[in-house]
């Protein structure tokens, strides 16, 4: 089990390096929370979640629940952030990627995504 985890971390680090290298080549872009949530190389939340209140949330996937009325469903914003940072805490078998734990997004980017999602 421990071995398994370290292999995963190895992959994650490698992938993170690749991503960072790719990003370094472009002029640094300042993303908005919405862009981070939509972009298929960043959050790509739309791959799995519809956002019924967003008219431009085109062709969303349906493997995750629609993201709507989030501030009512997550009165504690920290719990919402925790869900995005590492959803495997709440459900070890979840299919949703651990955006913070695996460094798919930076801490600052996750804060922006949370702000955006909280308003849905």
């Amino acid at each position: 089990m421990r071995n398994h985890v370290s292999v995963n971390t190895g992959f994650a680090l490698l992938a993170a390096l690749l991503v960072n290298a790719a990003m370094a080549a472009e002029p640094a872009k300042v993303w908005t929370g919405k862009e981070l949530a939509y972009d298929n190389k960043m959050g790509n939340c739309l791959a799995c979640h519809a956002m019924p209140t967003q008219a431009d949330a085109a062709q969303p996937g349906n493997s995750g629940p629609p993201l709507i009325a989030m501030s009512a469903r997550f009165p504690d914003k920290a719990a919402l952030r925790a869900q995005i940072w590492d959803p495997t805490v709440r459900n070890p078998e979840t299919y949703m990627p651990p955006f913070g734990k695996h460094k798919i997004l930076t801490e600052e980017q996750i804060d922006k995504v949370v702000d955006f999602i909280y308003g849905l």
């Binding site: 995963n8 992959f11 739309l46 799995c48 969303p60 349906n62 990627p97 695996h102 798919i104």
Partner: peptide, 24 residues
């Protein structure tokens, strides 16, 4: 087995979520 930065297994997509939409 799940691996990689996104923590997916083949089974996540082609069994558990088979017939679901990933985007379009």
């Amino acid at each position: 087995k799940r691996t990689g930065q996104l923590n997916f297994s083949c089974a996540n997509c082609h069994l558990d979520n088979a017939t679901n939409h990933l985007r379009s």
